[in-house]
Amino acid sequence: MTEFLAVTAAVDESFFTDRSGGGCIQENRLFCPDWVTDNYDRYLDPTLEHLILVGSAVAAGFLIAFALAVFAHRHRWLQTPFLAGTGILYTIPSISFFFLLLPLTGRGAMTAIIALTAFNLQIIFRNITTGLRNVPPDVTEAARGIGLTRSQVLRQVELPLALPEIIAGLRIATVSTVALATLAVFANGGGLGAEIVTGSNITFKTGIIVAGSIAVLMAILFDAVLLLARKALTPWQRAAP
C-alpha cells in the first residue's frame, strides 16, 4: 500500500503517549474513550481550521450565488447558462478541483476554500432562483400596484418570501461542505481531514472516528443553527396552521 508521506510527514513521536496507561490503544480497539479524554486538545486546532474553511467557503458561495441569482432574476435568459456553469463546477470533484488550481494558487487553505466555494454555488444559486420564482405573481403585482419600485419589491417582498428556500439551500450547502472540507488536507489546507489521514496512515481507528465524529457534529450544529435562523426570520410562517 502506498504511504501518503507527502500529506502527513509529521506523526510526532509523542502521538501514542498513552497518558491513561490502558491497553486499549496498544490493541488498537475500535474506539478508546480514554484516549479522547486525554487528547481532546489535539483536535482543537483542526476543528478551528475546519470551521474557517467551511465558514469562508459557504459565505463566499452565498455572496456569489446571491449576486448571480438576483441578476438572473432580472434577466431571465441568464438562468440557463448560470445553472449550466455552476453545474459544471458542482460536478468536478473537489479533490480534483484543488489541484486544477495548483498552477494558479498553489497549495493551502485558500485553494481549498476556492474549490469548496465552487462546489457550493449551484446548490445555493438553484435554491435562491426557485425561491424567487415561487413568489406568487399576485403578490408582486400588488406590491408594484401600491407604488413600490422593482428593487423595493425585490428587497421588501420577494426576498423575504423566498427566505425559507434560500435557507434550505444554505443548509444543504453547509452540511455538504463540512463533509467535503475533510478533503482539504490533500491540498495542505488543514482541517479535520489531517487527523483522519494521520489516523489512516497508522490505522489508528479511534483517531479516525474522533475526527470524523467532530465533522458530523459540526454539520448537525450548523444545520440546527440555520433552522433556528429561519424560524426567527420568518415569523409569519408560524401563524400558518
Binding site: A179, L180, T182, L183, I196, I209, G212, A215, V216, A219
Partner: peptide, 8 residues
Amino acid sequence: RAIPELAL
C-alpha cells in the same frame, strides 16, 4: 450528506 467521505 453529513458523512465525511474521507472518514468513511
